[in-house]
Structures are given as C-alpha cells and as structure tokens.
C-alpha cells in the first residue's frame, strides 16, 4: 500500500552501452535504478553496436524490481531517433532525454514515442520520461519542462556540461551549482516529480563524495546518479532515516490507525494535528527504512 506508492530513486547507476561486462553485472550492486547509456559514454563509431547491446539486454535479462532507464542521444539527431525506434520496443521503464532545454524538447520526444507505441500496440504512456537539464536554458526553463508531460517522472541536473557553459568548474562545496540545484528542485516539487542530482566523478575521493551526498539530501533531492558501484552503498546509507525519524513515522501511522478504529475525524500525535505533509513524510521515512532493511517487515502499512 504505502510502499507501492513511493518508488525509491536514491541511486541511478550509469551502465555504458559499450560495456557488456557492466551490463551483465549491473543488478548485483543494488542500485534503485539502472541507467543504460547510449550517449556520452559511447563513442560515435559504436553507437550502432551499443544500441543492439542494450536492446537485446533489456529484452533478455531479468532486472527484477530494479528500474530500467535508457539515456538516448539527443532526438534532434539521426542517432537519437534510431535509439528511440529500438529502445521503445525493448520496453524499459524510462527513457532519459539528454540536454533538455525547453518543454518543446520533451513534446518532440513524446510525439515520437507515442507514435511508436501506437504502431506496436503499447498503451499510450507506457514508456515514462526523464529529462536531464544540462545548460542554463534548461535550468531557467525547469518549470515549464517539469509541467510538460504526464510521462515525466523526474528531472536530473547534469552538472559537467552546466558548469562549463557557466564558465566555471565544479568545486567541493558546489557553490557553482547552488542556484541550478535550487531551481530544479523547486520545479520538481511544484509538480511532484523526482529530483535527481548529478554524478560525482572523482570515484577515489570517498570523503568529498559523502559530503556532497549529505548536501544534496539536505537540499531535498530524491537521489543521485552514480558512475561506479562503490558509490551506491554510501548514498543509501545517507538516505537511511535515523531511529528517531523511523520511530516518529511509526507512531504517526499508529495514530492514524487508532483514529480510524475510533472513527475519529481528528488525528493527533503528541497533542499536535497530523496533516497531509506529515503523512507524506512519514510514508517516505518508512519506505526508506524498509529499503535499508531496518524495519521488521510487513507492519505499518508497508
């Protein structure tokens, strides 16, 4: 019930379409989502081959509960259009659009996907979308992009391209991303879609990585893209609620249950009214705790 309503996207791990080894082992690291990449990690000569690799992998490998996302090439290129033709038919959960600058980019992709869906007899809207905002126009248009399509489940910030277009580079504290992250988050929250943070590319800097994960969690992101399996566990740990948070959430649900049993219209905990945002927060805490394996399963509406 509660658990089914909230999909966790704490970690979205990049898996390059040019690495069958990484694809074969992708599920064993426990990422919430796997993002199969046809874009930047695949060289121009290998686009055709990578497309076949991901197409057949999606059709053959059982990824279980793990969400499957495919990052295609920009749809205003022939490569991107061919990616769509192949990938929609292989039916991943989500297609991620790179370098999204405005709502029209999403509409264009949506029209192409809808046409393919009709051709192959998929219910319209089967394939969800995700948009990566990687330049100033994308960030400034975050609000219209967030509202552009029912298929859109979330937006991600792509920082490497963004900082370059801002004539700067990435730094440990991430001041250069402060405004962009804030705008993207607000746009996501306004319409209730997921907000995902960018990758941290220095895989050997564990300390810096952890700092950044704590920062983006505090900002309100739902999760972060990862480029290496070793980044998954630390993110999940940071996103695991504290005992105090879990305890509060459990008591919130206890109070709701009690009010239902007593047919009482008023739900209160510790003398304070329980309102909708509190219930939302409690659900999220329980879901995160469940995913971290620290709930004794089953109870509390999970």
């Amino acid at each position: 019930m509660v658990a089914e309503k909230i999909k966790l996207r704490r970690t979205m791990m990049y898996v390059s379409g040019s690495s069958p080894a990484n694809i074969a082992q992708a599920t064993i690291y426990g990422a919430d989502s796997l993002m199969f990449d046809l874009e930047d990690s695949v060289s121009v000569n290998e686009k055709d081959a990578a497309r076949f690799v991901i197409y057949h992998a999606l059709k053959t490998i059982d990824f279980g509960d793990t969400e499957t996302v495919v990052r295609i090439n920009a749809i205003n290129t022939e490569t991107g259009r061919q990616d769509l033709e192949a990938i929609v038919r292989a039916k991943p959960d989500v297609i991620r659009l790179p370098k999204t600058s405005c709502a029209q980019d999403v509409w264009d992709a949506e029209a192409m996907i809808a046409k393919i869906e009709r051709n192959i007899g998929f219910e319209e809207g089967t394939i969800k979308l995700m948009a990566a905002l990687e330049d100033p126009s994308g960030i400034l248009n975050a609000r219209e992009i967030a509202k552009s399509s029912k298929r859109l489940i979330g937006m991600a910030i792509g920082a490497e391209d963004f900082v370059t277009s801002m004539k700067t580079t990435r730094s440990p504290l991430g001041v250069e991303l402060a405004t962009a992250r804030g705008l993207l988050l607000m746009a996501c929250r306004e319409v209730g879609i997921y907000a995902l943070d960018t990758v941290y590319s220095d895989i050997n800097n564990d300390e810096g990585f952890l700092e950044e994960v704590k920062l983006i969690k505090q900002l309100g992101f739902d999760g972060k893209s990862c480029i290496h399996p070793r980044q998954i566990k630390p993110i999940h740990q940071v996103f695991t609620p504290t005992i105090k948070e879990i305890d509060y959430a459990i008591r919130t649900f206890g109070a709701i249950q009690e009010a239902e049993e007593k047919h009482s219209g008023v739900i209160a905990l510790n003398g304070k009214m329980i309102d909708l945002p509190m219930v939302e927060r409690a659900r999220r805490v329980i879901r995160l705790a469940d995913a971290a394996g620290i709930l004794d399963g089953g109870a509390y509406g999970c």
């Binding site: 080894a21 990484n22 082992q25 895989i203 050997n204 399996p229 070793r230």
Partner: peptide, 8 residues
C-alpha cells in the same frame, strides 16, 4: 573492464 580504475 568492470568499472575499473584504469583510465584510457
């Protein structure tokens, strides 16, 4: 290489 630390 599987998410190796070798960089080309």
């Amino acid at each position: 290489m599987l998410y190796g630390e070798i960089e080309l």
